[in-house]
Design a binder for these strands. Structure first.
Lengths: 296, 296
DNA sequence: ATGAGGTCATAAGGCGGCCTTATGGCCGGT
DNA sequence: ACCGGCCATAAGGCCGCCTTATGACCTCAT
C-alpha cells in the first residue's frame, strides 16, 4: 500500500527539482527523504527519479506515478479538512451544518478553498437532515446551513448553490445502455434496483416519484449501505442503480457507468445555502457563501 | 494526515458490524483495531463508532467519514495496482504498453477490474509515446498497446476504446464562462493560456490546431509541469487552460471549472488499443480488451 | 588544475509507535 | 444465574523511521 507522505514528497521533488529541497519543505532530513524515495521505488520496482549531481528529475514512470498521486492526495486533503471541521465542533468560529449530500460531495472542496482564503478560521461541521439544518440555523446554533429539497425551508433566506438530480445508471453492457429513447417510468418502477437501505433520503425521493406514476415499485435487487458499494455493484453489472448525479459524474465521464434517461420523472432537487431571514451572512460565512457562488 | 489502513478498517467495521470481525479480516488483533479506531476518532474529535455489547455501528459523523474515505481508498487501490503493474516490468505474463493519457486516466481502473477478473495474471506496464507503443507491439515486446492520435498506426489492428478531446476550461468567474456562443478560435489563439511545458503532447496538438487557423498563438501565461497544477491554476482563476476532457470531467460536473466551446477547432483524438495486424488478442490481453469495450 | 558548493548515498544510534498476548468489565440472551 | 460475545485496558517487545555524521561525486569558477 502506498504511503501518503512519500507520495507528497515525490510531488515536492518533482516541483523543486531536488531531494534535499523537498526534504526541507517536508521538514525532514535529506537522508530521510532519500530513504522514503527508495522504499517508494522498491514498491514500484522501477526507478522513479533520475539522480544527477545537479538535482533529481522524474523518470517517465515517475511522471506517471505523480499523475496518479495527484488526485489521491487531493482526496486525502479534502478528507483531512473535513476531519478538521468535524473536530472543531465545539470551540468554533464558523459553524456549518449541512445535509449529507452537500457534506459528502461539495463541502470538502469548499472547505479546502476556504482554508486557503482564510487560514485562521476554525470551521465546525455538523451533519443533519434538511429540517434539522433549518431548525439549528433558526435557533442560531449554526452560522450557515446547507439543505437539499425541491423548495427552500420556511423562515430562512437561501441561495441555490447547486442542483442535484437522481440519475439512473447501468453498466455499459446493460441493455438500457443502448436505448435511444427515454425509459418509461413504469419500466423503471417494475425493475428491481440496487438500492440504499430503507430510510435513506435518495431511496425515499425515488419511491415518492415513482408512486406518483401509480406504479408499485419492485422490491430492491440488493440493499447496500454506502454510495461506493452501490456504484461498485452497478459497475459490476448487478443491475441498475439510482444515485445522485454528483456521485456518478466522473463514472459517467469515464464510461464506467452509463446514465439512462427516464421519461417524465421529476428527480431533481436544489442544494441551498440557508441563513436566518432578513440577515446577511457575514465574515467567514460570507466568504464560504461566495466560494459556492460560481458552482451553480 | 489520515491513515489509509485505519480508513479501510473503518469501512470494514461498517460492513461487518463489529470491531473484532473487522480486525480478523484485516489480519490484526482486536485491540489493535480498537486502538486504530481510537486514533482516528481522536483525529476527528468526535466519536465515529457507537460501541454496543452487540457490535459497533457508525455514528452520523462516521457515515460521513466513510463516504469521504471511499473515493480516497479507490484512488489508492488504483495507484497500488498501477505500481504493481510497473513492478512486473520484467517477469511478466501480460505486457501492456500505453501512451501517457491512457495510462493516466483509463488504465488504473481497467487494471483493477482485470485483477478482479483474473487474479493470477502478472501485468506489466510501460509508458511511451504513441510511436514507441506501435514499435514495441510490432516487435513483439508488448502484448497489447494503447495509443492516442487521430488515426491508427500502420501495421497494427486496432479498436477505439475511448475518445479524448482537448477542452478549454476556465474558472466559473471568468467571462468566457458566461458566453452563450462558441468562442472564435482566433480569440483563443490570441489569449495567453496556462500551459504544460513545451514538448508536451497536448500542448503540441493545441498549437497545431491553432496554427491551422493562421493565427499565431500567444505566449503562455504560465507553464506548469503537471495536470494537477494546471487544474489548480485554472480553478484559482489564473486564466484559461486546455486539458484532456478525461482530466476535467469531474471538475466540470462539480462546477469547479466551466468548459468553453470553441468554434471550428478539431481538438479530438481517439484512444485505441492496438495489436499486431492479422492476430487476435488472446488470454489476458483479450480479457483486458473486452474490459475496455463498454467504455467507448 | 584546484577548491568550493551542491547533490545524493551510507552508516550508526536512538526514539517512538504499533502490534501482540493476557485480562477484565459489560450486556443480552438462555 | 450463567454463558458467550464484544470491547477496553495493561504490559511488553519488536520493527521502522528519523537524525546526525560522513563520504563520494560532479560542476563550476577561479
Amino acid at each position: 500500500m502506498p504511503d501518503l507522505p512519500a507520495l507528497e514528497l515525490l510531488l515536492a521533488v518533482a516541483r523543486l527539482g531536488s531531494l534535499g529541497r523537498a526534504a526541507a519543505e517536508a521538514g525532514i532530513s535529506q537522508p530521510a527523504a532519500s530513504a522514503r524515495m527508495r522504499t517508494l521505488e522498491r514498491l514500484a520496482g522501477v526507478p522513479l527519479l533520475e539522480r544527477t549531481p545537479r538535482g533529481s528529475v522524474l523518470t517517465p514512470a515517475g511522471v506517471l506515478v505523480t499523475e496518479w498521486a495527484g488526485p489521491l492526495l487531493d482526496a486525502a486533503d479534502e478528507l483531512d479538512t473535513g476531519l478538521a471541521a468535524l473536530r472543531e465542533d465545539h470551540n468554533t468560529r464558523l459553524r456549518v451544518e449541512a445535509s449529507l449530500t452537500v457534506a459528502e460531495y461539495l463541502l470538502p472542496r469548499w472547505l479546502v478553498a476556504l482554508r486557503e482564503a482564510l487560514p485562521g478560521v476554525a470551521v465546525s461541521l455538523r451533519v443533519g437532515n434538511s429540517t434539522d439544518v433549518a431548525a439549528r440555523v433558526l435557533a442560531g446554533e449554526a452560522d450557515l446551513g446547507f439543505t437539499e429539497g425541491v423548495r427552500a425551508p420556511g423562515g430562512l433566506d437561501s441561495a441555490v448553490v447547486a442542483h442535484d438530480r437522481l440519475t439512473v445508471v447501468v453498466a455499459p453492457g446493460h441493455r438500457w445502455a443502448r436505448r435511444r429513447s427515454p425509459l418509461p417510468a413504469a419500466e423503471l418502477a417494475a425493475t428491481p434496483l440496487v438500492q440504499r437501505e430503507p430510510g435513506s433520503g435518495t431511496r425515499e425521493v425515488l419511491a415518492a416519484a415513482l408512486a406518483r406514476h401509480g406504479t408499485p415499485a419492485a422490491d430492491p435487487l440488493l440493499e447496500l449501505a454506502s454510495t461506493t458499494a452501490l456504484k461498485a455493484a452497478a459497475v459490476s453489472g448487478a443491475g441498475p442503480a439510482v444515485l445522485s448525479s454528483l456521485a456518478v459524474a466522473d463514472d459517467i465521464a469515464s464510461g464506467r457507468l452509463v446514465a439512462v434517461e427516464v421519461a417524465g420523472l421529476a428527480l431533481s432537487r436544489s442544494l441551498r445555502a440557508v441563513w436566518p431571514h432578513g440577515t446577511h451572512p457575514t465574515g467567514p460565512a460570507r466568504e464560504l457563501l461566495s466560494l459556492t457562488r460560481g458552482t451553480a
